[in-house]
Design a protein around this nucleic acid. Structure first.
Lengths: 144, 144
DNA sequence: AATTACATCGGAATAATTACGATCTAGGAG
DNA sequence: CTCCTAGATCGTAATTATTCCGATGTAATT
């Protein structure tokens, strides 16, 4: 999705476009990877030094509620955020070091169907499927 | 795995069995579900009121390193811990309200193979696959 | 029973996230 | 274009989860 498409979609939902929100969106759209809240803050502060964490978190959760951002909970309790370029749901291959993510072509739907049959009493609301490892660049540095 | 099996396995690894560790193990073995660190602390304090968070966290990560405990990162950044009853890797159906978990019979190995072929440059170290929802009991109360 | 390496306690430090009152501003109305 | 107002932001403080640390205690070996 382009920045303009995103903006008009936001306007359509009655969301105000502030310079801070615009900058956060630019950061998210710039690179296809998971960002920590702090990374986003730092990048936005390069242009708007006064931006606060509050704004970053509020904007991220706003975008998440609207389906434009995906949140991932890494092992160790680290949360990261990525722009949801497509509308349809998909999974990721994620680098544990730099946060780079690659979209995956497959989704374990077969498993899901089996599970729904096996546990009809359970109200399933969602699932996670992420593959972790180290990308080409991060394998070279010692990864700990 | 029974408590005794677990204890002898720990002794075999040179781990001291303290009353606190014993109590934490009893809590984990009692019920098949994910616990937050705080829940475990509370339960252990029923018997040993002086136990500290430090001990709980240290013990959990000790058990995790030894493969006896699994850690899961819930949406929202909540970390929870469960005893790993079996040695072989498996996934869970998890209740977002009470933490109850049911072991799943299937693992998306098909997907994994496809992905390995598609991204040979990526060093895969692990994957997560969890299904979220509400268990029978928690559907009745308003779930938010 | 003595020894000692490792555990624990309690509280303080750190880190991540959320809350809040005062101030500011995007975008619609006139 | 200017005014108006709901909603956004700032700066900071509060909250929450987790980790650290020095003093003390203890499991298990000798």
């Amino acid at each position: 999705m382009t920045l303009n498409e995103t903006l008009s979609r936001l306007k359509g939902q009655g969301v105000k476009i502030t310079p801070q929100r615009l900058e956060i969106l630019k950061v998210l759209l710039d690179e296809e990877r998971y960002y920590s809240a702090e990374e986003i803050l730092k990048k936005v502060q390069e242009r708007y030094p006064a931006v606060s964490f509050d704004t970053v978190y509020r904007t991220l959760y706003l975008l998440k509620r609207l389906g434009l951002v995906i949140e991932l909970n890494f092992q160790g309790g680290y949360r990261r955020f990525e722009f949801n370029h497509e509308d349809k749901h998909h999974h990721h291959l994620v680098c544990l070091k730099c946060g780079l993510s690659r979209k995956l072509s497959c989704c374990p739907t077969g498993c899901l169907l089996t599970i729904k049959k096996e546990h009809p009493e359970f109200a399933i609301t969602g699932h996670s499927f992420e593959i972790y490892g180290y990308c080409e660049d991060c394998q070279e540095d010692g990864n700990d």
